[in-house]
Simulated scan of single mutants.
Amino acid sequence: MSITTKAQAAKTTTVPNPLPRIDDPRKIAPKDVRALGKLFFDQLQILEEGTREYQYARNTLIEMNLSLVQFAARRFRNRGDGQMQDIIQVGTIGLIKAIDRFELSREVEFTSFAIPYIVGEIKRFFRDTTWAVHVPRRLQELRVTLAKTKEQLATRLDRDPTVTELATHLNISEEEVIEGLIAANGYTAGSIDLPINSEDNDAGATYADITGKCDPGMELVDNIQALAPLLADLEDRDRDIVQMRFGQEMTQAQIGEHLGLSQMHVSRLLTRVLATLRHGMLTQN
């Protein structure tokens, strides 16, 4: 065989075989998915990424294996029908990650490889979205660990474990345990309209009735404190005009008569002074 013939033969062996065209991959029987999957994965390793054939092979693999997402999602059906669509979407992301990372050389069934990816993505979704108050992921994971450890130690000790016992068992500091226990309070939130759970609560008082509110007077105090140095910087006449207008509640005509100015002049002076004070307040904030 000539060199040219050998080169042509070598080139021919690297050309992908045409993949079968499947109209609806989701209707393929499970027993056929395994055989077809190997064929498509084999070609996926050869095809150039970004080409039409590559996209066809990848998309077909995704659709053929969507039943794995449905299977994994059943484990979370107690979360409610309202979230099932989100679970399916998140699980599909896990499936796609598994397809992109799977290699036939692993000698493991794709099903066994993909399920951990799908379930892991769904669990990550719940971990990141079900907390009523956002806390760092480290504390989210610590909450789960503490809950399991508390249950184990409570069974062994026949009582709730102390912070020290939890820290010793997990080989972490007591400060970390306390931080994790406090963070766990952010997992769920209750309505402030719920009645207070107390024997003395005959009137049906709610948490909203005893929850403190912002005092509008505090903002006024802050404004007065910020305004004081600005007033001190005004010229004497300007400061007198402000004091007469807002302190003594005199009209512009009365102020003009007192200072020997026209009402129009007082109006212009007052407008200028207020603009200066307003600018000073905004600049300070």
Results as ranks from 00 to 15, higher is better:
Lys38Ser: 11
Ile62Ser: 11
Leu39Ser: 07
Ser67Arg: 09
Leu68Ser: 01
Ala57His: 04
Asp32Gly: 03
Phe40Ile: 13
Leu44Ser: 10
Asn65Arg: 00
Lys31Cys: 01
Leu68Met: 10
Leu47Phe: 03
Phe71Asn: 11
Gln45Arg: 10
Glu63Gln: 02
Thr51Cys: 07
Ser67Tyr: 14
Lys27Ala: 06
Val33Gln: 07
Ser67Lys: 10
Ile62Pro: 06
Ala29Ile: 05
Leu47Gln: 03
Asp42Val: 05
Glu48Met: 09
Lys38Pro: 02
Glu49Ala: 14
Gln70Ile: 02
Leu47Asp: 05
Leu47His: 04
Arg58Glu: 08
Val69Asp: 05
Glu49Ile: 11
Lys31Pro: 01
Glu53Leu: 07
Tyr56Gly: 05
Ala35Arg: 13
Leu66Phe: 07
Pro30Gly: 04
Lys31Arg: 07
Val69Asn: 09
Ile62Ala: 15
Tyr54Lys: 00
Thr60His: 12
Tyr56Leu: 08
Gln45Tyr: 02
Leu39Ala: 09
Leu44Phe: 08
Leu39Met: 09
Ile62Asp: 07
Arg52Met: 04
Ile62Tyr: 14
Ala57Ile: 02
Glu63Asn: 04
Arg58Leu: 09
Phe40Arg: 03
Phe71Leu: 11
Thr51Ile: 08
Leu44Gln: 15
Leu61Gly: 05
Leu39Phe: 14
Ser67Gly: 06
Asp42Pro: 02
Gln43Phe: 06
Leu66Ser: 05
Asp32Met: 03
Gln43Ala: 15
Gly50Glu: 12
Ala57Trp: 03
Gly37Trp: 11
Tyr56Val: 05
Asp32Gln: 09
Met64Ala: 00
Thr60Gly: 10
Asn65Cys: 00
Arg52Ser: 08
Pro30Leu: 10
Arg26Tyr: 13
Thr60Asn: 14
Arg58Ser: 06
Pro25Glu: 11
Leu61Arg: 00
Ala57Asp: 07
Arg26Asn: 12
Thr60Arg: 05
Glu48Asp: 13
Leu66Thr: 09
Leu61Gln: 01
